[in-house]
Amino acid sequence: MSEHIVIKRVSNFIIPFIQLFSLYVIAHGDISPGGGFQGGVIFGASIILYVIAFGMKDGRTRISEILTDFMNSIGVLLFAGIGLACVIMGGAYLEYTKLAGSAGEGHGSHAEHALHLAGHLGIYGIEIGIGIVVASVMITIFFETANTQDDD
């Protein structure tokens, strides 16, 4: 049969752009539509496109089962870790502004700046964590559902 040269070449060309776009969506989650979940879905879709175009074997060499499991745990740990860090610093769960610590106390513009930065970085870390989890879960689900047809 035909070798799907066109599909393979075009997928090759656009997959890096898709991956970068997904990272852009994650990073700009707090100032534009999107965020961790959407970016993670787009990243997972890029890997799925790679597997559809090149087959399961190539896909597994590029992103192994161990790596997706690892990413899965790292994402949850990042999310929970930031939340717990807020608790340790004396706030509620996911109360980002407490991450500023002693720099955020007082009333000057300096303290306000620190609070703002802490909030921003906190949201940023949460988005990255959610993105990693969603991407790895999507990839895992796709690999598993595509694989079940091997057995029969």
Partner: peptide, 12 residues
């Protein structure tokens, strides 16, 4: 880039 490829994939 993408639309002609999708058309080609459907034809294929």
């Amino acid at each position: 880039i993408v639309n002609p490829t999708a058309t080609h994939a459907l034809a294929n």
